[in-house]
Simulated scan of single mutants.
Amino acid sequence: MNYSIVITTFDKRFEAFFKPLLLSIKQLRPNIEVIVMVNGPAKADFDPVFRSNALDLMISTPVVYPTIFPNFQSLAKLWNRGVLTSSNDRVLILNDDLGIDPNVENSFFDQFEAVLNYASNKTFTINGSFSHFVVSREDLIKVGFFDERLLGLGEEDGDFYWRYHETFDVEIPSFEIGNIDNVHSDITDGGYTKGIRTAAKFNREFVKTKKYQDLWFGGYKGMFDKRVKKILPDENQYPSEVFYQANKHLL
């Protein structure tokens, strides 16, 4: 079954969350391709000890490919670049604050791969959350990539959910899959201004005041608080990706 895994992480979650998650994944699926997007700090220097420890772990773990950003990047960019880097069209995107028990029968991956095999939708969430979800490169190109104008964390999932409905006139489905623990950690980079919990205030304001407009009637709610209409056009991000996918076999 061909799919890749993308994990986003940063220094403050390395030991407590990312490391055990990666090791659990590799215990269950040692040959699965894992793309790791390592974010940098917003207003600090990149920790060289963290860089060394992270690379040591990933070099010693088979089929793991890291990308390290020396400065803070949006979650939208990390997701986009992770999908573009992966070798497979289907990508399982995971937050780093997830726990997967490798020592149980009918593991998370046993259940997940069964769903992946029969699900008619190429894109879906797991347990109703974008902390763990599947996206296909094909759908991402059709809908438009996660909006990198959302410079921090937050709202990139709701924006994509809204635009997915706009594109296909259906909502992204969700499937219940067990033996995965969503911790919802509040540990974040300290260099950006927070809005709600870990989300960036900038992202919330961009969505609420720049990209969408609240409506009393009509429109579509999706994951937002109210029904809205889009008032700011999407940008054509990664325009050469379609050409690359269509012509890479000619190299």
Rank of each mutant, 00 (worst) to 15 (best):
Y3T: 01
Y3A: 01
S4V: 05
D11E: 15
L22Q: 01
I25G: 05
Q27W: 09
I32P: 07
V38E: 00
N39P: 06
N39H: 02
G40R: 03
D47E: 04
V49W: 05
F50H: 04
F50L: 06
S52F: 11
S52P: 06
S60C: 05
V63M: 09
P66E: 07
T67S: 00
F72C: 02
F72D: 02
F72Q: 01
Q73L: 00
W79V: 06
G82F: 04
L84V: 04
S86F: 02
S87V: 00
D89F: 06
R90P: 06
I100M: 00
D110G: 06
D110Q: 08
V115N: 09
V115C: 05
N117T: 11
K122L: 13
T125L: 08
G128D: 07
V134N: 02
E138N: 12
V143N: 10
R149H: 09
R149A: 10
E155I: 11
G158D: 07
V170L: 07
N179H: 10
D181H: 14
N182G: 10
H184P: 08
R197M: 12
R197F: 15
T198C: 11
A200S: 15
K201A: 13
N203K: 04
N203A: 09
K211D: 13
D214C: 10
G219V: 07
R227L: 13
V228C: 10
D234S: 14
E235A: 13
Y238L: 09
P239W: 07
V242W: 09
V242C: 09
V242A: 15
Y244E: 15
H249W: 14
